[in-house]
Design a protein around this nucleic acid. Structure first.
Lengths: 254, 254
DNA sequence: CTTATCGGTTTGTCCGACAAAGCTAGATTT
DNA sequence: AAATCTAGCTTTGTCGGACAAACCGATAAG
C-alpha cells in the first residue's frame, strides 16, 4: 500500500440517507414550502427509484428532524421545525451530559433577564394581554403547586415571546424545559412560595407595561433567586439534574 | 352517535415509535451507558417481536436524534448526543423561521457576555492555554479573512468551554453557527478588521487571565459591536439570515 | 509473521403481501 | 335536491422472506 493513498475512501451514503438529503434540500431551499405536500410513499418510490422500505427509513429521519410531518390524514407535508420538539432532544442531551442545576440556573438567569429586557422594549399589546391572562389564572391557583408551576413555565415562555426575538426563544427553551419542572416542588416546599411567585410575576408584568427595564430586570432576578433559595432547601445545586430528578420530581409523581 | 363521545381516541403509537421509545428509555435512565452495544437488528427483532423493517425505522429515529450511532463496523451502540449535531438542526430551524441578524446579534451578545463572565470566574490553566494557542495562530493569519474567521469561531467556542457551563455552551451553539460564518466577509470588508479582531481577543484573554470581569465584558461587547458595525456596512440587520446568506456568504464561495 | 482464503454474521436493499384507516364517488334516502 | 350511506380505491403500518456486499474471525498458505 502506498504511503499516501492514491484514492480517498469513496463515500457511498446509504440510499435512505440520500432520499432524506434530497427531500431536505428541497425544503431548505424553499422549493417545497412549509405546509406543502411531499407526495405519497408510492410517489417517492417512483421518483427515487428505490424500495418503499428505503423511502420509509428516509422519511423517519426527516420526521425526527422536524422537517416533515404527517397531517391529520397521515399524508406527508413539509413543516417548520417546532422549537420545542427540538428542544426536547436538547434537554435530553443535557441530562445525559449530567449537567448540574448550578449550570442550569446560571444560564437561565442570563436568558430570562435577556427575555425581560427584550419584552420591556418590544412587547406588543397582545403580548401584554397574554401575560395578564396568565397572571390572572396564576392568582387563582396560588395554592396549587402543580397548576401554578405549569403557569409559571408559561409565563416565562410568553415573556420570551414578547421579546420578539426568536433566537432567544429557541436558546432558552432547552434549559427552561429542565428548569421549570422543579418549580412545583419548590413552591410546594416553601410556605408563601406561591404568593411570592405570583407577586414577582405581577411586578414583572407591571415593569413590562410601564417599559421600565430596570424594574423588570430587578424582579426577574429576585424571582429566580427565590427559586434558587427554595431549591437549595431541598437539593444541592451541584448535583446533576438527572439524579435530582430521579430523587424528587419523578418520585413525587408516583 | 352521542354528542359527547364516551371514550376518547386511544392512541396507539406505531410499533416503530414504541421500539424507539423503549430503547430511548433504557439509554436515558442509564441502563444502557454511552458506548455500550445495543445488539444487532436481529436481536432487537427477537426481543421486541416485530419485523426487522419496523426495528430499522425505530433505529433511524434514534440515530437522527443522536442517541445511538453505528461504530466503525456498523454495529449499534448508545452514545452521548453531540451538541453540534443537534445544534445544526436548530440552526436550520432558525433559517427556516427567517430570523434576522438583529435577533441573532442581540442573543449572541447576551450569550457571549455570559461566556466571558463564566470564563473569567472559572477558566482553568488548560482553558487559558487553549485560548492562548488560538490567539497565537490568529495573529499569524491576521491578513487571511477565511482562516481568521475560523479561528474567531473557535476562540468563542473555547471561551464558552472555559466558562465550565455546559448549558451555556449548548445554548450559544445554534446562534453561533449562524453568527460566525459572517465574520469572514466582515473582516475582509473592513480595513484593519483583522487586526482589531485579534486585538480584542488579546484583551479578552488578558482579562480572563487576570480574572478581571469588567474588562472581559467590556472587550467582548466592543468586539461584537465591531462585528455589528462591519456587518451594517454590507447588509441590513433586519433582513433574514437566509436571504443575507444567499446573497453574500454563499455567493462569495462560488 | 504476514498474507490469503473461506465460512458465518450483519447490514442495506428489495419484493410482495395484507389489514386497518382514510378518502372518494356513486347509490340511497329523506 | 340535499344529506347520508356504502362500497371501492388509496395509503399507511406491518410483516415475511430474500439476496448482495461488507465485515469478522479463524484457519491455511507463503
Amino acid at each position: 500500500m502506498p504511503a499516501t493513498p492514491l484514492f480517498r475512501r469513496i463515500d457511498v451514503a446509504p440510499a435512505y440517507q440520500k432520499v432524506a438529503d434530497a427531500i431536505e434540500r428541497e425544503i431548505v431551499n424553499g422549493r417545497i414550502k412549509p405546509g406543502e405536500p411531499i407526495g405519497t410513499e408510492q410517489q417517492l418510490v417512483e421518483q427515487f427509484g428505490v424500495n418503499r422500505s428505503t423511502v420509509r427509513e428516509g422519511i423517519r429521519v426527516l420526521e425526527e428532524g422536524g422537517l416533515i410531518r404527517r397531517d391529520s390524514s397521515r399524508r406527508l407535508q413539509a413543516c417548520l421545525p417546532r422549537y420545542n420538539k427540538l428542544a426536547t432532544r436538547l434537554s435530553r442531551a443535557l441530562i445525559l451530559h449530567e449537567v448540574t442545576f448550578r449550570e442550569l440556573f446560571e444560564t437561565s438567569m442570563t436568558l430570562e433577564v435577556a427575555s425581560v429586557e427584550g419584552a420591556v422594549e418590544r412587547a406588543t399589546d397582545d403580548n401584554i394581554a397574554e401575560l395578564a391572562g396568565n397572571l390572572e389564572r396564576s392568582a387563582a391557583v396560588v395554592g396549587n403547586p402543580a397548576d401554578l408551576a405549569e403557569l409559571d413555565a408559561e409565563f416565562h415562555l410568553l415573556m420570551a415571546k414578547a421579546s420578539q426575538n426568536r433566537v432567544l426563544q429557541l436558546a432558552r427553551e432547552p434549559a427552561a424545559q429542565l428548569f421549570f419542572p422543579t418549580t412545583e416542588m419548590i413552591v410546594g416546599g416553601v410556605p408563601e412560595g406561591g404568593a411570592r411567585l405570583v407577586e414577582a410575576h405581577r411586578h414583572i408584568l407591571d415593569a413590562i407595561t410601564r417599559r421600565d427595564k430596570e424594574a423588570g430586570v430587578l424582579w426577574t432576578r429576585r424571582h429566580l433567586q427565590d427559586w434558587r433559595r427554595g431549591f437549595e432547601k431541598i437539593a444541592s445545586l451541584d448535583r446533576s439534574v438527572e439524579h435530582t430528578y430521579m430523587e424528587h420530581v419523578y418520585a413525587a409523581r408516583q
